[in-house]
Design a protein around this nucleic acid. Structure first.
Lengths: 204, 204
DNA sequence: GGGGTTGTCTACCGAACGGTAGACATCGAT
DNA sequence: ATCGATGTCTACCGTTCGGTAGACAACCCC
């Protein structure tokens, strides 16, 4: 009845689906719950996305685009090696603060297999390439410790996404730790950790 | 008919459940599939574990015990700060090599919420305490860079578990990368990363 | 103002899920 | 030889799931 309009409804559904896929996992989230949260019947959802899988693909695509935007914007005007790395971490944490299920969904995307993840990561590929070149250049400059740049990027990724998604672990290891303050603390820790991993070290 | 015997069947079911919970997630794995993989009917599984949740708890407990054993054994006879840290990482990677779904299951345990994770991590608590004390002592000695030891442990955890579970990401970032050789490479990378994070640095 | 398009709904379906009821077979102990 | 405990099975149930069929209403265009 309300006829909210096609494109808007579509993106609302995708955002809610990302939330629920992130929180419950792909298998654990149901089309009924997603549509109910948006205030619409399941059949309306199926009108926009003919299958659950199609909905997932739309989510993967949308998440990739969103993350690419956030990172690209964070890099604007930044110059130094360290400044750029820190800006990216900060931007990702800011996104996680306003949308806690986002990193959870990204992790779920990885769990669903390479094909699914590629839908998400495909959009980010130019940025990935830039990052590898950036790290390589830093190593050539002597500003970054020498190592395999792609492998380093992978490890940085896991450290950041891990610290954003392993809340239960954090709770068990560090103790009660919730809310924004915790997020800021984790950002500080990851930032220090990454910095230590990037910095060239004298011995060995 | 075969009457394999209670305790053995029980542990076989738990091991298979860990595999499937790890691979498909808790919601994605079905009691039918788990029991079928063991060669038994679902009702036999339900004889040992009255509900799916009871099965999960048994898995969490068993996984905690197993990991505690592996780590404790790895620490035997090791002395130096770095030697001990490296031994733990190596032991966890060895476990992952023989049982790929194990780290996946641990990650799933974290995803299922603090209560579930506590079932797993409770067993590991003495080791956790030892690790924190160990890191603190290292900092007092000046052998480990000064920081919050619990937070550092958390970050180390995420780096290790991440590099073991994010195979799809690795594939997307580094390129085709499967099998034992890949695992060894990742272990080397994580080891170097952790070492860099632990080492005291001159500047800042 | 009639007709196609777009959006939302009610009603329903078959399959799969977690779980129950209970028959039956095997075994150790008496 | 019998009996209770243990283990495995067949049969079935209620719910939920993803998905289909089709009615109907609002809107746009001509």
């Amino acid at each position: 009845m309300p006829r909210t309009g096609g494109a808007e409804r579509r993106s609302t559904l995708v955002e809610e689906a990302i939330r629920q896929f992130g929180r419950e996992g792909y298998a654990g989230a149901s089309l009924d719950d997603i549509s109910r949260a948006v205030g619409v019947r399941k059949q309306t959802l199926l009108y926009y996305f003919p299958t659950k899988d199609a909905l997932l693909e739309a989510c993967l695509q949308a998440a990739g685009v969103r993350l690419a935007e956030v990172i690209a914007q964070a890099l604007e005007g930044k110059e130094g090696y360290w400044e750029r790395a820190e800006a990216v971490i900060h931007a990702v944490f800011a996104l996680a603060a306003e949308w806690p299920e986002f990193p959870m969904f990204v992790r779920e995307a990885g769990r669903l297999g390479p094909e699914a993840f590629e839908r998400f990561a495909g959009v980010l590929d130019p940025l990935r390439r830039r990052a590898v070149d950036f790290l390589q250049a830093g190593m050539d400059d002597g500003q970054v410790r020498k190592q395999d740049p792609a492998m380093l990027l992978f490890t940085l990724y896991t450290a950041v996404i891990g610290s954003l998604t392993e809340a239960s672990v954090l709770n068990a290891v560090v103790g009660a730790d919730r809310g924004r303050a915790s997020l800021r603390r984790r950002e500080k820790e990851v930032t220090a950790f990454v910095r230590a991993a990037l910095e060239p070290v004298g011995e060995r």
